[in-house]
Design a protein around this nucleic acid. Structure first.
Length: 486
RNA sequence: GGCGCGAUAGCAAAGCGGUUAUGCCGCGGCCUGCAAAGCCGUUUAGACCAGUUCGACUCUGGUUCGCGCCUCCA
């Protein structure tokens, strides 16, 4: 029995799909005018985890995540760059796809772009005008009349009379009510525009999600998700638009993921305290970032720092170490296994991934104790349910990139420090770090083994120290010497 | 001013009205030539004040502190 915390009711509720066995989910995606930051990474990872869990639970999932490819910031940025809006948005969509692929995100089933749904938006706005929920202002903009929608504020718990509109932003004098929001903006010079019954213009931000979700998932669907900061006004406005236009409930469950923070402050563009995904991936393995996100509950705030990422890396290393050197097959999960059952119970409890991770660690402990292949298999497969632990353990522990060149030259004294230290700066691709010569490492390991055989422990320890200084940790096991990167 | 969320050990982070969360770090032991990894054990908890209860980290009320939304934001 899956339970979801519903922002609408502010409590955990048993999930009941509209149509048996099917889940229709819409998540607000990115506005593509810049690189994605860790906040975006969290939305992507969280709802990827959610859709994966629904699929694991045998639901037929339709997951839609939109792309906002027309808005003020995009227009502004394109002008600044002197490039077309299409070129700008495509570029950042490509970057987003790269980032999300690295984070192990399964692509949503549909990723609609706002600009390809203009007709649906116009139709919807017309309906809202007909029904008296929207009006054409004297400046050519079309506004939604918030007072016309009785339930306005039900999602965010806001009361129209308590909102302090205009306190931080100049109020548009064309509005009937200060809280009214724009559905259609009349064309301005040098801005992209589309023809409409109200003249040329472009859609407001909120209407796109209402139009696309209705088009792709129908007027009434199961889950609507997004970052907490979208709860008001964006999601509140979506409800007002959709429910007024369609005369039915929009989404049964509203899910909001918590913020990523830096020094206990929300990471955001406006505060300038954000880290882009690609920036972080230069220093940390993408799976470490994914694990970092999943080891916290999706609704909790998540503080970002190098220290926390280091911690996450050490933890994930423990999991992969347990899997190392074991013949693990990918097969069906036996959900009757006590730990699998505990994992399922945790996931069913509003996607409690921290508890699910704890199960993984308990399994790792069991694997380390017993070496049971069955347990290791369960560990890997349960990890796979949330998109973790699917790589070869050595690939994770040693890095995947093959060497660039051998630093051992013919006849040279191999015992002298010949493993150069690579410095990391913004331009350094992390793959260069992985590129350190594996062959050299193997040769040094062989030399050390010879030294050990000769009981020359001073030399053996010196080689080990030398490698350690280069970030290579040696581990002597009954099966031989293995290594991993720090 | 309105509304909402949170406060758990050195750090991170869950569940739970009574029984080991979990991970990292620290300490002791085993293992090892020595390490590392692993295993075993172990030190650090529940902001503060009341109340309910046989019993509260867990429920209720209050206090303090922190965060968020009320503009664009994932």
């Amino acid at each position: 029995m899956l339970k979801i915390y519903n922002s609408l009711s502010r409590e955990k509720q048993t999930f009941t799909p509209i149509e048996a066995g099917k889940v229709r989910m819409y998540v607000c995606g990115m506005t593509v005018y810049d690189f994605c930051h860790l906040g975006h990474a969290r939305v992507m990872v969280v709802f990827d985890m959610v859709s994966r869990w629904f699929r694991t639970s045998n639901y037929d999932v339709t997951y839609v995540r939109n792309i906002t490819d027309i808005d003020d910031k995009i227009i502004k940025r394109a002008n600044e760059n002197g490039e077309s809006i299409g070129a700008l948005t495509q570029r950042f969509i490509d970057f987003m796809d790269e980032d999300s692929a690295k984070l192990g995100i399964i692509r949503p089933d549909i990723e609609p772009r706002a600009t390809t749904y203009i007709d649906d938006m116009i139709t919807m706005i017309s309906t809202l005008i007909e029904k008296g929920h929207a009006y054409l202002a004297s400046n050519g903009d079309v506004f939604y009349s918030v007072r016309s929608f009785a339930n306005y504020g039900k999602l965010s718990g806001k009361s129209l009379d308590d909102l302090r509109a205009g306190e931080r932003v100049e109020v548009d004098t064309h509005k009937k009510d200060v809280m009214d929001f724009v559905l259609w903006k009349a064309a301005k010079p040098n801005e992209p525009n589309w023809p409409s019954p109200w003249g040329n213009g472009r859609p407001g931000w909120h209407i796109e999600c209402s139009a696309m979700s209705a088009s792709l998932l129908s007027a009434h669907f199961d889950i609507h998700g997004g970052g907490q900061d979208l709860q008001f006004p964006h999601h509140e406005n979506e409800i007002a638009q959709s429910e007024a236009a369609h005369n039915c409930k929009m989404a049964n469950y509203w899910m909001h993921n918590g913020f990523v923070r830096v020094d206990d402050e929300k990471m955001s563009k406006s505060l300038g305290n954000f880290f882009t995904i690609r920036e972080v991936l230069k220093k940390y393995d993408a799976e470490v970032v994914r694990f970092f996100i999943l080891r916290a509950h999706y609704r909790s705030p998540l503080n970002y720092s190098d220290m926390h990422l280091d911690d996450a890396k050490a933890s994930l290393t423990r999991l992969y170490t347990a899997l190392r050197g074991r013949e693990v097959s990918t097969n069906i999960i036996d959900w009757n296994h006590p730990q699998a059952a505990r994992f399922k119970e945790a996931m069913d409890d509003d996607f409690n991934t921290p508890e699910a991770m704890a199960v993984l660690f308990d399994l790792a402990n069991e694997v380390n104790k017993t070496g049971a292949v069955k347990t290791a298999t369960l560990l890997k497969n349960l990890g796979g349910v949330v998109g973790l632990l699917q790589r070869d353990a050595d690939a994770f522990l040693q890095g995947e990139i093959i060497s660039i060149s051998s630093s051992i030259t013919e006849g040279a004294d191999i015992s002298v420090g010949h493993i150069e230290t690579l410095s990391i700066d913004d331009e350094t691709d992390v793959s260069l770090l992985y590129a350190r010569d594996m062959e050299t490492i193997d040769q040094l390991i062989d030399l050390r083994i010879e030294a050990k055989k000769a009981k020359n422990f001073v030399e053996a320890d010196r080689i080990r120290k030398e490698l350690a200084d280069s970030g290579i940790i040696l581990e002597d096991t009954p099966q031989g010497t293995t290594w991993r990167r720090t």
